[in-house]
Amino acid sequence: MPKDTYIPCLLQLFRQYGYDGATLARISEATGLGKASLYHHFPKGKDEMVQAVMDYLEQWLTENVLPSLQGKGTALEKLHRMCDRLSELYEAGQQPCISATLLLGSARDLFHDRVQARYCAWITAVAQVLVDAGLDRTTAQQRGEDMVIALQGSLIVSQGLNNPKVFQRSLQQLPQQLCRDLDA
């Protein structure tokens, strides 16, 4: 099978265990591939596996989340569409964010630049929606950052409390919070 077949499984493993905890033994067991087969598909080992997962997520965000912020509709409608797609990605708050797990432990230095670039692109896209709706650029940028804070924080709290409703509530409130003071 092509290596792309294993990406969803790897995503789940790295979400659940982080970089350090997703051992080759766990990966082998979850994928059904022996270590030799893993290295056949991913010659650079776990680093390449994580890079493949990040490529997959970046493509998903580029194809699903960022387009939801473009096109027709008010800023509020666009942000609601974005939140709907994020709910899908995080299974309504039942799945943790892989970015958070990759920024912990030994993986931080390995993947920080990619996580940072993804956050920056996302913040910029949200800020542009808010600027187009009439908000000044500085405030729009800060609200884009607030969006990431709210989402990441609610995902962490949802995981900590084992209660995905925290994330769901945050997603429901987020568009109105970002659009406050706007005729969006």
Results as ranks from 00 to 15, higher is better:
F42H: 01
Q59H: 13
D113P: 02
I27G: 01
L57I: 13
A22H: 09
K35F: 12
L61H: 07
P96E: 05
F42I: 07
R114I: 03
E91N: 11
I98W: 06
W122Y: 12
G93K: 02
Q59I: 12
E48F: 01
S37H: 03
E88C: 13
A121F: 00
G18N: 10
G21K: 13
A22M: 13
S87L: 12
F111P: 00
W60D: 09
A75D: 04
S37M: 06
E29N: 14
A30R: 12
L102E: 00
R85T: 11
E58F: 01
G73Y: 04
G71P: 04
L66S: 02
Q70H: 12
I7A: 04
R85Y: 08
L76G: 02
L89Y: 06
K78R: 15
Q94S: 14
C83Q: 08
K35Y: 12
I98Y: 08
K72C: 02
L13G: 03
D84C: 10
K35M: 13
M49Y: 05
L103M: 15
L11G: 07
S37F: 00
L11C: 14
Q116D: 09
G71C: 10
L79F: 07
K35T: 15
F111M: 03
E77H: 12
D84G: 15
Y39A: 10
S99V: 06
Q94H: 15
L103N: 10
G32S: 08
S99A: 15
R26C: 12
I27C: 09
Q94K: 14
G71A: 09
L86P: 00
H112V: 04
D55M: 09
Q70L: 11
A30M: 08
Y56A: 08
G73S: 10
Q95M: 14
P67K: 01
H40V: 04
I27P: 00
L89H: 07
K72T: 10
P43C: 11
V53T: 04
A36P: 01
C9L: 15
R85G: 01
S37G: 11
A107E: 03
A36D: 13
S87V: 01
Q94F: 03
A121L: 10
Q51Y: 02
V50Y: 00
R108Y: 12
W60E: 08
Q95V: 13
R15D: 08
Q16D: 15
R85D: 05
L61D: 06
A100G: 15
D109M: 10
C83L: 08
L61F: 07
Y19P: 03
P67H: 04
P43N: 11
A107C: 05
R81I: 05
E63M: 08
D113V: 10
K78D: 01
L11N: 12
G105E: 02
H80P: 00
Q59Y: 09
L13N: 07
F111N: 00
L69E: 02
Q12V: 11
P43F: 08
E58Y: 01
Q16F: 03
L110W: 04
G32H: 06
G18V: 11
H80T: 11
Y19N: 06
E48M: 09
I7M: 05
L76I: 03
L76C: 03
A36Y: 02
G32Q: 09
A121N: 12
S99R: 01
H112S: 12
V53D: 00
Y119T: 03
T101Y: 06
P43Y: 09
Q70Y: 06
L24R: 04
Q12Y: 11
G93I: 06
